[in-house]
Design a protein around this nucleic acid. Structure first.
Lengths: 216, 216, 216, 216
DNA sequence: GATGAATGAGACTTCATTCAT
DNA sequence: GATGAATGAAGTCTCATTCAT
């Protein structure tokens, strides 16, 4: 189902009639932005790594910042994707017998996404603080859409008696914290450690469900 | 006890014979680095906000990066502080009857620290990725010292039968995730929401202890 | 008789086999050159306003400067036109009983020309200082041809006893100054004022003839 | 009395604490702007001719346009100066017995000004069309102040019976046209011809006074 | 004939850093 | 210690022009 298809494709789809050079520019920009940060990256360096003339960058992106937005914009919708995607909508409510299974699916999904898109994720996290438009877009997508969606789901599982009775926002933040804490440790802080992903996920799920699962 | 004394004082202590202008420079730099990021901040802007001449900055800090390090360096030791500080050493093992109380103390402490030092924290998080020396220092302080220290503590509470038997690293990461997840939501993402800190902390502790506390 | 026919037609005649696009390019170039000056106008802006591709401009005009010359060149001959034009040649000497009538005809004619060709006139005046070839051409056309022609005419009216005895160059420059002074005030400096053209011209003629007419 | 003192001094007075380099920059800019026009002049060329680093220009003038304004701004007040200057105010009405003498004084004065400030005048005339701020300032200074002042003077001489009864605006425009027509021919179009200034001025005055002087 | 992607030289501008005062 | 003018390298961006399609 591959919704965490290569993000580059997603970015490319957002533009019409991509030339080969334009693709090279995007790839190079993603790499270098992620390595050194947006502000410390020079367009001349991007041009060099992309193998194009510097002017070519500006034929496609009016400013350096436009280039950043072309990269980061589409990321937004995909970060919240698996929680929000229409296709998955019903699955979430019905297909999973237990919240535990749902959790496992989400974690796997996001883990896969991160593994495939670390550079983009890094750029995203770094730059969101400094570009208010990004921040606004982000809240639209995530805070509004994703959170509402998840609150719904959580409530439905509370009604099934699988989760403790606590305002969903606490549960949501708790889950998110644990998952992202793990993902960041796993992929950002200590990517080189020997991780046993399956085991880690099992334990994580166990701890989460201890925390919010209803005990009998 | 005030170990989360104003970080600026900590920074100032690190230098000898601070002049008034130098203090102004540090304050201005912290503000602007935090607002726009290190790379996007110009020394001339710092000079202007500090009310000094451009040259004055370089009389005290040989390069712009030296200025960054003078700011970020001391932060490091204080981020890990309450877990590591000598003075608190014994407290941790003995003074708290329950892990729950310890947890509460730690959370309060870090929450206080963050509230007082948001700009510094932001600079720290932003720049650590881009400056390998910082990254190394950080792992020395935190990953080595703090983690080891915490593993110890966790084990001691496991032996007291208060915590489930799970390799401490999982427990440590779990706790850290939940706490920092909350702190970031609280102070970075949605600082303007109406938060009820006491209640939030209670719930957080409840969820954590559900997760890792031993059930009878 | 329409010698102040639309200058664009004159320009177009100078080229062979004009395509529709080429015409659009010329129109756009005239507009923008006149608004912002040659040096501040980009070929891409011309292309955009003309609704053609950037490359198309260079298919017709090897360089941006060639485009300017294609526009400004023909203007030259027409600025001096009514004084020089063959067809009008004899008219000048014979047809007007009085110098006053000749003057009136010339003024009306140039006024009409200016009204119809302000943008071209502006370009011409702006760019002539910066392009020596233009300057040279201009002196060929105007200084040589027009001045000589006018000297002749002035002399003939002096012989008829209608003009004071003064070297024609003074009379010529005097007339030119007053006419162009008025035209510039009328069309360039204050085009939006309420002008009463007929009255203005009458007064201008009166003042000129006071100045150079023979008194009895 | 030297009110057409070197304009450069006037420009320099407008700024406080001019450095040697800054003066060099202004001189170089005036020269090159006047030779090639503002838009075709590169800051690097100015820097080279001024013998400074390119960056130095921007320490003193935030943008290239600011540099233009620093040059052209002060010109404005001085172009209209001799007509408007307070000091000369009374002189105009009383000191000259005849309008002819006043005229001669004005012409000499402006001729002197132009000779000393051709480059500045050229820049002024070239750029005023393209920079609306300039145009506005110009109308404030000249159209408003100068014209009103002159209308007054003309009326007073009409009352003395020295000038014909015609709305002053016509007389004003007529005089201006003849004077500037001559000045431009003299200094801009044919500066290299052999001019006999005294004779030219005499004739010009004669023609003007023929035009507007009251005949007995 | 027309297109528009690509180029690379060069434009304006910023900036960390130096140094004479 | 403090200043701020000066620097020049480097940054972002523009533009006339070329060329494959």
């Amino acid at each position: 189902m591959q919704e965490y298809q290569d993000m580059l494709d997603v970015i490319l789809e957002n533009e019409e009639k991509i030339t080969e050079k334009q693709k090279k520019i995007l790839e190079a920009a993603i790499e270098i932005f992620s390595e050194k940060g947006f502000a410390s990256t020079s367009t001349s360096e991007i041009a060099k790594r992309a193998g194009v003339a510097e002017g070519t960058i500006f034929r496609h992106y009016r400013t350096k910042k436009d280039l950043l937005l072309a990269i980061v914009g589409p990321v937004m919708s995909k970060i919240a994707a698996p929680f929000v995607t229409r296709g998955i909508h019903k699955l979430l409510d019905t297909e999973f017998d237990s919240f535990t299974d749902l959790l496992r699916a989400i974690i796997h999904n996001r883990q896969e996404f991160m593994r495939n898109n670390m550079p983009l994720f890094k750029i995203f996290v770094q730059e969101i603080s400094f570009h208010p438009e990004l921040k606004d877009q982000f809240f639209q997508h995530v805070s509004k859409q994703l959170a509402n969606r998840m609150f719904h789901i959580i409530k439905s599982y509370q009604e099934k008696g699988q989760l403790i009775d606590l305002p969903p926002k606490y549960i949501f933040q708790f889950i998110l914290s644990v998952i992202f804490g793990h993902l960041i440790a796993r992929n950002v802080l200590f990517p080189d450690k020997n991780w046993d992903d399956e085991k880690d996920i099992d334990i994580m799920i166990q701890l989460i469900m201890n925390g919010i699962g209803k005990k009998f």
